[in-house]
Amino acid sequence: MAEHIVVVGAGYAGLAAAKLAARWTGCRVTLVNERDRFVERVRLHQLAAGQRLRDLPLADLVRGTGVELVVDRVTGIDADVRRVRLATGSLTYDRLVYALGSRADLRVPGAAEHAHSVSTAEDAEELAGALRTARVVAVAGGGLTGIEAAAELAESRPDLTVLLVTGGRFGAGLSAKGARHLRSVFDRLGVRVRDGARVAEVRADGLVLDTGELVAADAVVWTAGFRVPELAREAGFEVDGDGRLVVDQALASVSHPEVVGVGDAAAIRRPDGLELRMACATGLPTTRHAMRSLAGGLAGREPRPLRFRYFNQCVSLGRRDGLIQFVRADDTPVERVLTGRVAARYKELVVRGTVLFERHPVLPAG
């Protein structure tokens, strides 16, 4: 009898993993997800800014692939008997693909009560609602998510005053040329930047810095970090300090080899020890490697080492501008960049390409 592979989580990595497993292994594959829609997470800042996104029912995306879709919430994993507990029942598995992704890290005092995020569709919709009556919005976090959110809100809502507050240097991780373009776009859009400012608390009236200063805002967007679910730790799988599943070069759990980790919830390292960052651009090619390794293992073949390199960082700066920062294989920046409308079109093609990949995951991942 064919083995049963259960994939938990239908984000970018989980959906691709389920479809590839069904295509390459001949096993019975069940995909479990809490919602019945695929969410374009990389577009959620657009949803927060009041734009409409495509409706992508998961049933349509898996139709004809052999993947069975179960819409339910995963509540726990019993590793000793290989069972996934759901809100309305349970599923047994021979192999488990752990793809539960990440959410905003709201552990700073007051963040869970008073801040909004753009890590789920529901979060983004709530933020869009809060912004209808806001005049000043503060974006906490100067990473790519915060940069994209601040630029999108400023362009879509010129009636808003948009602030970006980051504990680090604004544009850190970019080349000098990239950082200059970023600053010029924010100046043009009227986004005010406070860098080197650490947030100690979120209140209903804004952000409190560690100096005690209040940065007043009617709404706060929290993009300062992400965290993963505790289910892997609770199941007894080996995890790192952030709760991410520790995996080997085949992306199998080092403690439970019948479990494969893909996407944000797995701590994936290259053979040289470089840990890969949470990103769609990371998740798609490494998921394909994981499923090839799984299929090869079932056929008695030894898995190949993970081969992965970075090429660029794609940043949308509203709908009419962007920044493509080219990088070395280890993700450190070089001076070469694309900017302006060309970069905006480039980023849009990449984002559209991710959905094309989800429909046809045997295609090359961009």
Rank of each mutant, 00 (worst) to 15 (best):
M1G: 15
A2F: 04
E3G: 13
A10Q: 03
A13V: 09
G14C: 02
A16T: 03
W24V: 06
T25G: 03
G26L: 08
R28V: 15
R35I: 07
F38L: 06
L44K: 09
L44E: 05
Q46D: 11
A48S: 10
L58G: 08
A59L: 03
V70L: 07
V70S: 07
V74A: 06
R85K: 11
G89S: 07
Y93A: 03
D94K: 00
V97E: 06
G101H: 05
G101C: 08
D105S: 07
A111E: 09
E113F: 04
E113R: 09
S119Y: 15
T120W: 00
A124L: 01
A124N: 01
E125M: 00
E126Q: 14
A128E: 12
R135C: 12
G143S: 14
G143H: 12
L144K: 10
G146L: 04
S156G: 14
P158W: 13
D159W: 07
D159V: 05
L164C: 09
G168W: 09
F170Q: 05
F170W: 06
G190W: 13
G196Y: 05
A204Q: 00
V208M: 01
T211S: 13
G212H: 03
L214H: 00
V221Q: 12
W222T: 06
V228K: 10
F237P: 00
F237E: 06
E238Y: 02
A250R: 10
A252I: 00
A265S: 15
A265T: 14
R269E: 10
P271H: 05
G273P: 03
E275D: 02
M278R: 15
C280D: 05
A281I: 00
A281H: 09
L284E: 11
T287K: 05
A290D: 08
A295Q: 04
G296D: 06
L298D: 07
G300R: 01
G300A: 03
R301T: 09
L306D: 12
Q313D: 04
C314N: 15
S316I: 01
L317K: 02
R319I: 05
R320A: 10
L323R: 08
L323H: 14
L323I: 09
D331Q: 08
T332S: 15
E335C: 01
R336G: 05
R336D: 10
T339L: 07
Y346G: 01
E348H: 00
R352Y: 15
G353C: 11
G353T: 06
G353V: 02
T354L: 14
V355N: 12
